[in-house]
Computed example of a mutant assay.
Amino acid sequence: MKIILTGDRPTGPLHLGHYIGSLLNRVQLQDTCTQFVMIADAQALTDHAKESTKVRENILEVALDYLAVGIDPEKTTICIQSLLPELFELTSYYLNLVTWNRLKHNPTVKAEIKQKGFGEAVPAGFMVYPVSQAADITAFKANLVPVGEDQLPMIEQTNEIVRHFNQTYKKEVLVRAEALLPKMARLPGTDGGMKMSKTLGNCIYLSDPPDVIQKKVMKMFTDPGHIRVEDPGKVEGNPVFTYLDTFDTNTEKVQELKDHYQKGGLGDVIVKRYLNEVLQAFLKPIRKKREEYAKDTAGVMEILKKGTEKARLTTVKTLSDVRSAMGIDYF
């Protein structure tokens, strides 16, 4: 059976991009795989060190989103990263197997440093987070890791560490990981940006109330050349139609709208109103389920506590194997 490790940084509630990019996969895979889902609070602190209270609060928000979309704690182990001390010890050992130059040239790290505007003031913890991720993955001996395409360099670096460790200590302790890419690479932001991002403020959150969803939809970017209703419009690169393709099960209706829009005579407002109906119908049951779980936050935290305790049974065993291979199991 495949072992999966995946997770999210608790920097805010989850959005539709998360649903399409990873959450849907997790719900589907939990019936056929051993799955661990980690709330990566320690990783969130690498660039939110001064916002630890916010990170703490968002652990519950992320957990509520998990449960609301159908991640079942009876099938999936949900755990909190900072409460698994073995991960930090593994990271310290792996750091000795990776050069600083290699870390600096990790494409994902370079792109995120630029996006976050760190300049020369990059936190050291942020620079080494690919090694921390390798510790997360290998601690569970995960051989399948759902990631977006932009995270592929992280899997590559993890497998470099796996290979280097096993060769250095002449024992096959760590397991190579395979990336599992989502069917849809990424959901564009409401502003037409390449991806939906909390940082960019172009998200529709799973927990957004109906009026907020409507406002966001009606302000969505469309075809800038579609000025008048009678003008032919472009469907490609138009996020309104991308969302309809993704969330509307009535494919015939969507195709009719596309044909009409491309021919001319269909205004953006009409299409957006229809998209709003589609998203409201999609998100209503998720929001309702989330509200039910939110009535018992102590119960949700108990799920995380039990999941973390269960996860530690695995991470403790892996650390023991690693220490034994290194010859530092002294007693």
Rank of each mutant, 00 (worst) to 15 (best):
A179S: 06
M127W: 00
V37H: 13
G201M: 11
V271P: 15
L257V: 03
I20W: 00
L187F: 02
E120I: 10
Q30I: 04
T190N: 15
Q43S: 11
Q151S: 04
H15E: 04
F126A: 05
I39V: 06
L23P: 03
V62S: 06
T168R: 10
S132H: 12
L244M: 14
N143F: 00
T91M: 02
N238T: 15
T32Q: 07
T168V: 15
V175F: 06
D65P: 01
V37D: 01
L14T: 02
T91A: 11
E292C: 01
S92L: 13
L275Q: 04
G264E: 03
A49G: 06
R163Q: 08
T308D: 06
L45T: 12
E252A: 12
L83W: 03
A40G: 02
H48L: 01
V254H: 07
T222S: 13
R273Q: 15
K171Q: 14
A44K: 00
G237Q: 08
L304S: 01
V145W: 13
T34S: 09
M218V: 14
P182K: 02
E236N: 07
R228E: 04
P123T: 04
L87R: 11
D41Q: 09
T138L: 08
V271H: 09
R323H: 02
A134D: 07
K263P: 15
G17W: 05
I213M: 06
F282G: 09
G299Q: 00
E120N: 11
V271A: 14
K219P: 11
Y205C: 04
T108K: 09
K183A: 15
G327W: 11
Q214P: 12
Q280F: 05
M38E: 10
I39Q: 00
E256S: 09
H226N: 05
P130N: 01
T76W: 10
S197H: 13
L313T: 13
T158E: 11
E252D: 07
N25K: 15
S197G: 06
T91D: 15
V269S: 12
L200K: 14
E74R: 08
Y66I: 06
V316N: 15
I155N: 07
T77D: 02
I113M: 08
A142M: 03
M1E: 08
L97E: 00
A68G: 06
V37A: 14
T138G: 06
L83E: 12
I78T: 09
T251Y: 05
T6K: 11
I213F: 02
T138E: 07
T34C: 02
L266N: 06
Y293H: 14
G193Y: 04
K234R: 03
K171H: 04
K141S: 08
P224I: 10
G265A: 00
V173P: 09
Q262R: 15
L200H: 14
L283D: 14
V175R: 12
T318E: 10
Q167I: 15
V229R: 04
V254Q: 02
A42T: 00
S132A: 08
I204E: 01
H18M: 01
Y261M: 04
T318P: 10
L83Y: 02
L60P: 02
L266V: 06
G327I: 07
T222M: 08
K195N: 09
P285M: 05
L83D: 10
M184Q: 12
N166V: 12
M194Q: 13
F165M: 15
A142C: 01
Y94G: 01
L16V: 11
E112V: 10
Q81C: 13
E89D: 13
D208T: 08
P210I: 02
K104Y: 05
H48C: 05
G237V: 07
T53V: 09
A139C: 15
